[in-house]
C-alpha cells in the first residue's frame, strides 16, 4: 500500500507542477489579450492594477469570487452547475499530453494527438449543457449555434491533423515534434497551417467566429444566466482552451519544443521556453484577429467550414499522400 501512496503523491505533485503554471498563465494571457486589443485600437487597456496592469486578471478573479452565484429557479440545477465544471476540467486535462521537452511530458501516450482531438471535441458539451440547463431563449440559441459550429470545424481540424500524421507516421506528440527536426511542417504544409489557425479560431469560439456569444444578438449567449465563480470558470476554461489550441498548432506545425536553428545562441535556450514562445506568438495572432476582423454571419461561417475548408483540406490529404507515395517518402517504409 505505501508504494501506491508514493506513486499517487508523486503523480499529484507532477500534475500540480503543470496545472498551477497553466492556470497562472491563463490569467496572464487574458491580460495580454486585452492589451493587444487595446494597442490595435489605440487605447491603453488594463494598466492600473500592478506593474503594467499585470495583476488585472487576479483582481477580476477576486471580484468574481465574492459575487453571488445566482441559479435561475426554472433551470435544471444539476446540469446548470455541471456545465462550467466540465468546461474547466476538459480544458485542463488536455495539458497532460503536451510535451514541453523531450522528457518533460506528464503522459507520453501512443495516441496523444487523438486524445487531444477527442478532448477538444468534448468541449462542446460544456456549452450545450450550460445553454440548455439555463432554460432561457438566449443561452439556448447560443448553445445550438455553438454545437453546429464546433462540430463543423472539428471535421476540418481532423483532416488537417491527418495531413500532419501522414508525414509523421505516428500518433505520439513527441514523435510529431521529433519528425520536424529538419523542417517545420509550417513550410511544406503552409496552406494547412492557415486553415488550422482559422478553424482553431472557430473551434474556440473566438472572434470573428464568436457567434455563440454574439452580444449584439444574444446578450452573452450560453453564459447569459451565469454569474460569479461559475462565469469565471467558463471564462478560464475558454482561455485555457485557446492556449491549448495554440500549443497544438505549435506542436503540429511550428516544431514544438525545437529551436528554429540548431546553432549556438539558440540551442542553449531550454526547450520549454521555445514551446512557450511559439504558443505566445500564435496567441498574439489570435488577439490581433480579434481586434481587426468583424464578426461573421452565421451562414457564412457554415459555408466557410463545409464548402471551403473541408474540400480544400481533403484535396490536400490526397496531394500529400500522393506526393509521399510517389517519392517513396512514406514513414515506416
Amino acid at each position: 500500500m505505501p508504494e501506491y501512496a508514493t506513486i499517487l503523491f508523486s503523480e499529484v505533485l507532477k500534475i500540480l507542477m503543470l496545472l498551477v503554471p497553466v492556470l497562472v498563465s491563463v490569467a496572464m494571457i487574458v491580460w495580454l489579450d486585452r492589451r493587444v486589443w487595446a494597442f490595435v485600437q489605440k487605447r491603453r487597456g488594463p494598466n492600473v492594477v500592478g506593474p503594467f496592469g499585470l495583476l488585472q486578471s487576479l483582481a477580476d478573479a477576486l471580484k468574481y469570487v465574492f459575487k453571488e452565484i445566482i441559479i435561475p429557479a426554472s433551470s435544471n440545477k444539476v446540469i446548470f452547475i455541471l456545465a462550467p465544471i466540465i468546461t474547466m476540467t476538459l480544458a485542463l486535462i488536455s495539458w497532460a499530453v503536451i510535451p514541453f521537452s523531450e522528457d518533460f511530458v506528464l503522459a507520453d501516450i501512443n495516441v496523444g494527438i487523438l486524445y487531444l482531438f477527442a478532448v477538444s471535441s468534448l468541449g462542446v458539451y460544456g456549452i450545450i449543457m450550460g445553454g440548455w440547463a439555463s432554460n432561457s431563449k438566449y443561452p439556448f440559441l447560443g448553445a445550438i449555434r455553438s454545437a453546429a459550429q464546433m462540430v463543423s470545424y472539428e471535421v476540418s481540424i481532423g483532416i488537417i491533423i491527418i495531413n500532419v500524421l501522414l508525414c509523421v507516421g505516428s500518433l505520439n506528440l513527441s514523435d510529431i515534434v521529433k519528425a520536424q527536426e529538419n523542417v517545420w511542417y509550417v513550410i511544406p504544409l503552409f496552406p494547412m497551417f492557415v486553415i488550422f489557425f482559422i478553424s482553431a479560431l472557430a473551434e474556440t469560439n473566438r472572434p470573428p467566429f464568436d457567434l455563440p456569444e454574439a452580444e449584439a444578438e444574444l446578450v452573452a449567449g450560453y453564459q447569459t444566466e451565469y454569474s460569479g465563480m461559475m462565469y469565471a470558470m467558463f471564462w478560464l476554461g475558454e482561455y485555457a482552451n485557446i492556449l491549448l489550441m495554440c500549443a497544438l498548432g505549435s506542436i503540429l506545425f511550428l516544431g514544438g519544443w525545437l529551436s528554429p536553428v540548431d546553432i549556438f545562441p539558440f540551442n542553449i535556450i531550454p526547450s520549454p521556453i521555445w514551446l512557450i514562445l511559439k504558443i505566445l506568438l500564435l496567441f498574439v495572432l489570435f488577439a490581433l484577429v480579434k481586434a481587426i476582423v468583424p464578426r461573421y454571419r452565421y451562414d457564412q461561417l457554415m459555408r466557410l467550414g463545409w464548402k471551403v475548408f473541408l474540400p480544400l483540406s481533403l484535396t490536400w490529404v490526397v496531394l500529400t499522400a500522393g506526393y509521399l507515395m510517389y517519392f517513396n517518402l512514406l514513414p515506416g517504409n
Binding site: A147, M150, V151
Partner: peptide, 22 residues
C-alpha cells in the same frame, strides 16, 4: 485498445451524441 477507445470518444461522443442532443 487505445485507438478504438479514442475513436469511440471522437465519433460517438464528439459528433453523434451532439447531434442527438441537438
Amino acid at each position: 485498445a487505445e485507438f478504438l477507445g479514442m475513436i469511440m470518444l471522437i465519433v460517438y461522443v464528439g459528433a453523434v451524441a451532439v447531434l442527438f442532443l441537438f
